[in-house]
Structure formats: C-alpha cells, structure tokens
Design a binder for these strands. Structure first.
Length: 471
RNA sequence: GCUCCCAUCGUCUAGUGGUCAGGACACAAGGUUUUCAUCCUUGAAAGAGGGGUUCGAUUCCCCUUGGGAGCACCA
C-alpha cells in the first residue's frame, strides 16, 4: 500500500449485553481488513453509559472474541478510564465556542420535538440556550441547574465517501445541536467516539449501517477540533427472518448462545463472513486464513442479509464431518464434559459423526451406546411384521450370534453370520428388529456396527430384553 | 413525520450492455439403504413496476413502489 498511513481499525462494543452476532461480524470484518493489510486491531469498550454497562458483559465480549479467534492487538481500552481526556476536550470546545451548556428540561424538549414532528418538520433542538450569556450560564451552573453540553451544529451540507456505498450526503442543518455530554465528566457517544478515534489514530471506521446517520455528526465534531478525516465503511445489517434488524425477540443473538448450542468457532466465522460478503467464485467453505486472503471491503454487499439458521446448520455439519474423529472427540469432551473415556467417544463417533450438526447432538445420537435406552416394544416390529414373528426372528438371531466368539464379534463377521437368516426371512424383518433392539431407537446407525461396539455380551443382553418386551 | 441507505430464485449470493441469468441452503422427485444421517442424480425457483439512454438493458440514468435504518441527557 502506498503512502497511506498504517491501517488501524477498531471494534467498539458497548458492554450492555453479551457479544452480539452483528458486533461479532463487524469485529470479523475489521479483523480481516487489519490482517490482510498488516494493520492493527483495537478493542475499545464503550462504557460511557454507567447505568447499563456491566463488567460481566465486558468479560463475555472478550471471551467470545477470543473463542472466535478474533485477536486484538491493542486494548481493551475502556472509555470509563478516559474521563479526564474527555473533560479537557469538552472544555476546549466550550471555550472555542463550538459547544455550550443547555438547561432545557426533558419535558420541554419532548414537547418541542412532538410539535415539530406534527408540523412535518425534522425533530431537532431549537438552539434556545445558545443565546445564554456567560454570567447566566455561570449562575445556573452555580445553583446546580440540570444541564447538558451541546455541540453547535453548523448549518451546512456535509458529504463523505463510504468505501462500500460511495458518496453520502447529509444536511447538518436538519440535525440541530446534539447533546455531546451529560455534564463535564460524562461524555456521550458521538463525542467520545470522535476523541477516541482520533487519539487511537484510527484510519478506517468499519461499523454497522445503523451508524451511518451518526457519521456526519462525528465528522462535524472532528472538524471543530481540526482532526483529520478518516475512511468509513458501513456494513449492511444482519436481519431477522422478518427483515428487521436482528434482535433477540426472534433468534439467538449472542455469540455465547451459539457456542453453548455446540457450533464450532470456525463455523461461525465462516458463516458470518458470508453475511454481507462473498468471494468471486462459488467456494463456500473458508478457513479464517483463506478469508483473510480473499477478503476485501469493495466486495461487501450494500443490502441487509437475513440470518438463515438452516444454512448455518448445514455449514456446521460440514465442519463437524471434516474434523478427524480424534479432534472432534476432544472438542466434544471439552464442550460437553462427558463421563466417558476418549476411546469410547472416538469409537462412537465412527457411528454418529456424519449425523451430527452441532457438538451437542452427540449426546442424543450416541447416548444409546453408553447406556440402554428405555423404549416401547412397538418400535421393534418392522412394517409388515407382527410381534410374534419379530420375537421369533430375534430368537433365531440369538442362536446364530451365540456361535460367534467374543473377539470375533466384528461387524463383518456378524453380517456374514446373519446372512442366511436375512435372505430367508427378509432384510427388513431381521435387520430392523435387530437394530431397534440394539439401539432402542427408531432411527439409528446400522445394527452390525452397533453390535460390534456394544460387544457380544451387551448385544445379546439387549436382544434378550427386546424378546421379553414382545412376550 | 423528517433524513439517509437499499432492491437478482423463499434465503445467502455470482455475473454481464448481447449469458440457457450461475452456485449454495432450504424444498420436491429418484438412486444407495432395514431406519435415520451421509452421499449421488434430477427438478422447480429470481433481476419490483414505469419511463428513458442504446441496435440491444437484469446491467447505466430518472421516477414510483417496496423494504430497512436513524432521528435520546443509549451506544
């Protein structure tokens, strides 16, 4: 890259909830961009709202990012640790005349806004307190009148170039004098962002489209300070099925929920990368490394992307199936904390891996290999069979299987031993009851492989249990 | 209400001033199969509408419509 300064990007979540899927996607795009260009990724915790910010959410955000493999080069930097810096900057704006104290009450402002909207005008602050004289302000401050600090929004049009959307233009005159601090110690979002992005020498602001309308406000404040411009890229929103901004009303929105549901981090990365971005070709499976190589902001979509859980599940199944059983067993053990040894899990995976979509599926799918299921005798009977025939068939199988030595109890041997019975009595009449007896389930892997894992003793016992159920 | 953004199969999307508008998920049918899953084959499925520009627009421009986001002493 040319004379362009070093690339510095940031992810700036507010710790008022767990790491949201949309924030994670924004983090990923920032990270991919930084990785691709040898840039620096900064984590900034935007906790200026003291009421709603919680340390446990900050913890969740950091852990979730780490789990996803989104590495942070600088931070976390907390806005709550920077109060002095904001105060100095606020004073600077106050003395330069770019900002002023406003003593209007909330009720007053709400009334103004409602009346403006009813007249078909954009709701904005009247600017009434701009007219206050210095002595008046000092007096009100001295008597502790309730106040905020407002920025004098210039009455001009402002335009900027968005990397994804091109030229975007706003009329600042329609916005009005926005509040930039609750008081000299408590800055508000649009102000703190400007100071931070400047202090942290951010080169590219890559964030959700919901911030598009904040951009002109922030640029106006930057210009009041004489800060240099930066590059912007506004990402399309992640949408619910009903095409509104993804919210927890309709779907799981926290990364931790997906983690708990047993999705692999590489699946989530691959999936959210494709929410609003797509490579040139038709390749669908991308590792983080491959994403870094293929990624560029110009190929980011402009329109919102609906979050499609079915596709996520398909992708998840692809990833699960692609893992070596030994590796998958470790992941399962870490995630589910099972009371079974590794060998057994690996063995069970031979039967259920291709049936799993999430780590959690292992429990439901493989449980029957570790302990006997309780089931109703109805499931033992093949469609055209009767309970009596079924019982008779199972008894015949026992006789055959008894002849196999314990260490010869392999799937091939079992299959060979039952061959005659199967052809004489029909595959369905033999194999269905056997499979059902061994698994205790209507749907399961095949009988020979189950029997091999169960071993001769347990297999015969389970068949005997089935026979007794049919009496 | 005001401002801004957006518009290809149901969903994620590819691509092009002349294409059979391609892929993936989901769906349907078939194959493999004792069941489920996997796997394979096939199918159905799209450029919102109206104007331009052009020999020719899905592609470029405008309007309409539709959708979304923002408009806090939240971020």
């Amino acid at each position: 890259m040319s004379p362009e300064r070093h690339i510095r990007v940031r992810i700036a979540p507010s710790p008022t909830g767990s790491l949201h899927i949309g924030t994670a996607r924004t983090a990923l795009f920032n990270w991919l961009y930084a990785q691709k260009h040898g840039g620096t990724m900064i984590l900034r915790i935007e906790d200026t709202d003291r009421e709603r910010s919680k340390p446990e959410f900050e913890q969740d955000i950091i852990e979730s990012l780490k789990w996803l493999g989104i590495t942070i080069d600088e931070g976390p930097i907390r806005q709550s640790d920077r109060t002095d810096l904001y105060r100095i900057r606020l004073e600077e704006l106050l003395t330069s005349g770019h900002a002023y104290y406003c003593f209007c009450s909330k009720e007053e402002l709400e009334g103004e806004r409602a009346s403006m909207m009813s007249q078909g005008m954009p709701p904005r602050y009247s600017g009434k307190c701009r007219a206050l004289t210095q002595p008046e302000v000092r007096e009100k401050l001295r008597t502790h009148a309730k106040s905020v600090i407002r920025f004098k929004m210039p009455e001009t049009r402002i335009s900027f170039t968005d990397i994804i959307r091109g030229k975007i233009e706003f009329d600042l005159g329609l916005i009005g004098d926005i509040a930039i601090a609750k008081n000299i110690e408590e800055p508000l979002y649009n102000f703190a962002v400007v100071i931070d992005d400047h202090d942290m020498r951010i080169s590219h602001v890559i964030r959700g489209e919901d911030h598009l309308a904040n951009t002109p406000k922030q640029i106006a404040i930057q210009r009041a300070f004489g800060f240099p411009d930066m590059h912007y890229a506004h990402l399309p929103l992640i949408l619910d099925k009903d095409r509104s901004k993804m919210s927890k009303r309709n779907a799981a929105t926290a990364i931790r929920e997906y983690r708990e549901a047993g999705y692999l981090p590489e699946t989530i990365i691959n999936f959210i990368a494709f929410l609003g971005w797509h490579p040139q070709d038709d390749k669908e499976i991308f590792s983080a490394r491959e994403l870094v190589a293929a990624f560029n902001l110009e190929r980011v979509q402009k329109a919102g992307a609906v979050f499609n859980v079915e596709k996520l599940d398909w992708l998840s199944g692809q990833y699960i199936r692609s893992l070596a059983p030994e590796e998958l067993a470790i992941r399962i053990q870490e995630h589910l904390k099972l009371d079974a040894d590794m060998e057994k899990i690996i063995q069970a995976l031979g039967l259920v891996q291709e049936r799993m979509k999430r780590l959690n599926d292992f429990s439901d799918l493989a449980q029957f290999l570790f302990e006997r299921e309780t089931y109703h005798s109805e499931i033992l009977v093949w469609k055209e069979g009767t309970p009596t025939e079924t019982k008779d068939n199972l008894e015949a199988m026992i006789e055959v299987l008894e002849t196999l030595a314990e260490k010869a109890f392999t799937r091939e041997n079992i299959q060979a031993a039952l061959e005659t019975l199967t052809t004489e009595r029909g595959r369905g009449n033999v194999l269905w009851p056997l499979r059902a007896a061994l698994s205790g389930k209507e749907a399961s892997p095949g009988p020979f492989e189950i029997a091999e894992i169960l071993g001769k003793k347990e297999s015969l016992e389970r068949i005997n249990i089935a026979i007794r159920k049919l009496e």
